[in-house]
């Protein structure tokens, strides 16, 4: 079965300096795939390049069998890819409801109310905050609005850049549970995470990036038990 997302030989960077080089990565349908690695390894850049936010110099990206290497971001959303950036990921003066609404503009659904209901069922806490300005919410609630907005376009693939960044440990569990729920609804997930251990626990596959290059890839379990990976990124202790 061919992968939902396939990245081959990807090179990208800023101003002529490559940050990621020769990246190969496949994401299978309905899996949770995690990218981990030290700071500055190029994890965010990889995600942004896949989503055409950063210019690609070489390599190909294909999605659902179609070459999307040259497409602009606005074209990727109707194709079924959505992204939750790490920071500034809600529209602060728009209400929660308006934030969600904006998520449908690039890929208008046939039944917007049904989609909205679907998304709100994932984030019940937001139901009584629909008329509140998103900027007034707590960090955890904002993250939910951000994810909700991305899900409103009914994506097949959801990209997340460090979804747990800046959140309290309690919220970590909530977010990872949410990701499992999202996957249950048929959405494939590719995310960059700093909390490597916990991310790998829910991941089907993991990819370790070091200095902009592929270091090692494998199933979540395999990586959790790999000595080299454990020592460098997982704090050394057994999973």
């Amino acid at each position: 079965m061919s992968a939902l997302l396939s990245v081959k030989g990807l090179i990208a960077g800023y101003g002529g300096v490559p940050i990621i080089e020769n990246i190969n990565l496949d994401v299978e349908d309905h899996e949770i795939s995690v990218i981990i690695g030290p700071n500055g390894a190029g994890k965010s850049t990889l995600l942004k390049t896949i989503f055409a936010l950063t210019a690609r110099s070489e390599g190909t990206i294909s999605f659902a069998g179609k070459d999307i290497s040259g497409l602009k971001t606005a074209k990727l959303v109707p194709l079924g890819i959505s992204m939750v950036p790490q920071s500034r990921n809600v529209f602060p003066t728009l209400t929660v409801d308006e934030n969600l609404d904006v998520g449908t503009y690039a890929a208008p659904p046939k039944d917007k109310d049904a989609v909205r209901e679907n998304v709100l069922s994932l984030f019940p806490d937001l139901r009584d905050k629909l008329d509140q300005a998103a900027g007034e919410l707590s960090g955890g609630q904002r993250q939910m609005v951000a994810m909700g907005r991305a899900l409103m376009s009914e994506p097949k693939l959801l990209l997340l850049d460090e979804p747990t960044a800046g959140l309290s440990p309690a919220y970590l569990e909530v977010i990872f549970d949410l990701l499992l729920d999202i996957r249950k609804r048929g959405v494939t997930i590719l995310m960059v995470e700093q909390n490597a251990k916990q991310a790998l626990r829910i991941a089907d596959n993991g990819h370790v990036l070091v200095s902009g290059k592929n270091f090692i890839s494998g199933t979540g379990d395999a990586l959790l038990n790999d000595d080299a990976v454990r020592r460098s990124f997982l704090g050394g202790a057994a999973a």
């Binding site: 989503f51 936010l53 971001t73 606005a74 990727l76 959303v77 109707p78 992204m83 950036p85 500034r88 990921n89 809600v90 529209f91 602060p92 003066t93 728009l94 904006v102 998520g103 503009y105 690039a106 890929a107 907005r149 991305a150 376009s153």
Partner: peptide, 10 residues
Amino acid sequence: DEPELAAVAG
């Protein structure tokens, strides 16, 4: 509000 996020949202 956020032009970059608007681009991300397509």
